[in-house]
Structure formats: structure tokens, C-alpha cells
């Protein structure tokens, strides 16, 4: 098990390989469909300092507003990453992001982006909403809450020992491509 703390240097991220189990700590940012669209179309600066050498989490959480006005994460597993495939590589390079957490993996364009700009894809366990919310220690701030709604907002959160597995690294390797190829061969045999 590898312990990593945000901010992560390019050198450290390039050490990671497919299959590595990682416990991630530090400040990361949730972003999904509307946030990615915005980051490509308008390249807003408000999120820049939080993304630099940090990690984007594909997640639409359930969040609770506490009596003192602060927020807590109640359930926060990953959402399907492939929807961000058209945007991801450009977002990584534009904002100097070191990693993306999601589920299901991503395809060629993102894999190229990881290689080019020095980043990895971390896979979290889909559906493990409560367990992951327990590793969110603090909600630091939120952007676009009113406009996008709670699931789509940029939540800036501090996590401690968030469990993930590297399934796409910065050297062009992808566990998802491997499984796709193997299962494709089996499916062909079964269908014959």
C-alpha cells in the first residue's frame, strides 16, 4: 500500500504503475459533467489553485449542511468516468492536474493525456459511498453550488487515506484495455 499526499509532484506520479493500491490524502476537488464542460469552454480561474498538482474526483456526493453553516459529506462514491472522456485530457493539461479518481476507467485520449502531462487514473470502488465519505475529513469550500446543484458542483474537500487503485498510469498502461481485450476474446468464443 502506497501513501500519497497532495500536492503530488510529476516525478512521484510517474513512479505509479497499474495495480498499485494507494491511500490518498490532502485537498482534492469533485467535478463531473457540467464542471468539465465549464473548464473546457470557459477555463475559469477560481478553481486553478485547488487543481494544481492535485486530483479531480468524479463524484456527485450527498452533502449535509450543518447547523453552523459548514458542510459534511454523507455518501460519496465515484461516478462513471467515461462521460468526461472528451474533456479530461485537456483539463489535466490546462490545470496541471496529477490524477483523476473515478470508476470504469477511460479511453485512448485520456491515456495519452496522462502520459503527456504526467498524471494517473485512480479507480475507487463504485457504490462505496459511505466508506469513502468517512475518509472526507473536511469540506473546505464549494463553487457553482447554486447554478449546477449539489451533485454537479465543485466541492473542494480534504481527504485522509482515500483508498484507490491505479488502473491507468502515465506510461500508457491501462488495466481496462487489458480486461476489455481478454473478455472480448472469451465473448467471441461463447457466442460462436
Amino acid at each position: 500500500m502506497i501513501k500519497l499526499k497532495v500536492p503530488i509532484s510529476e516525478q512521484d506520479i510517474r513512479k505509479l504503475k497499474v495495480g498499485d493500491e494507494v491511500l490518498l490524502s490532502g485537498t482534492i476537488v469533485t467535478a463531473r459533467d457540467q464542471a468539465h464542460k465549464l473548464m473546457i469552454e470557459e477555463k475559469p480561474d477560481f478553481i486553478r489553485e485547488y487543481l494544481k498538482e492535485s486530483v479531480i474526483y468524479h463524484c456527485g456526493p450527498i452533502v449535509k449542511k450543518n447547523d453552523d453553516g459548514s458542510w459534511s459529506f454523507v455518501s460519496a462514491g465515484p461516478t462513471t468516468s467515461i462521460r468526461e472522456e472528451p474533456y479530461q485530457a485537456d483539463v489535466i493539461c490546462e490545470y496541471n492536474v496529477r490524477g483523476v479518481i473515478g470508476k470504469g476507467g477511460m479511453r485512448e485520449k485520456t491515456l495519452e493525456g496522462l502520459k503527456k502531462c504526467g498524471a494517473v487514473y485512480f479507480h475507487a470502488v463504485g457504490g462505496a459511498g459511505t466508506l469513502i465519505a468517512n475518509s472526507v475529513k473536511k469540506v473546505k469550500t464549494v463553487f457553482k453550488l447554486e447554478e449546477f446543484g449539489s451533485p454537479e458542483a465543485f466541492w473542494v474537500i480534504e481527504v485522509e487515506d482515500f483508498p484507490v487503485i491505479v488502473t491507468m498510469d502515465s506510461h500508457g498502461n491501462s488495466l481496462h484495455e487489458k480486461i476489455l481485450e481478454q473478455s472480448g476474446k472469451t465473448a467471441e468464443e461463447l457466442i460462436k
Binding site: 450527498i62 454523507v74 455518501s75 457504490g127 462505496a128 465519505a133
Partner: peptide, 25 residues
């Protein structure tokens, strides 16, 4: 195996804390 371990731990925590096992309800 690691995934199943995480899933089962999550199921247990969700029941204990009475919070949604998955954020997509």
C-alpha cells in the same frame, strides 16, 4: 478481493451509520 472487501465494509458501515451505501440513490 480488495474490491469485495471494500464493498462489504461499506455495506456494514452504511447500515450502522444509517447513511446511503451509494451516493447515487
Amino acid at each position: 478481493k480488495a474490491v469485495f472487501r471494500t464493498i462489504l465494509e461499506n455495506v456494514r458501515l452504511a447500515r450502522e451509520q444509517s447513511t446511503p451505501m451509494c451516493q447515487d440513490t
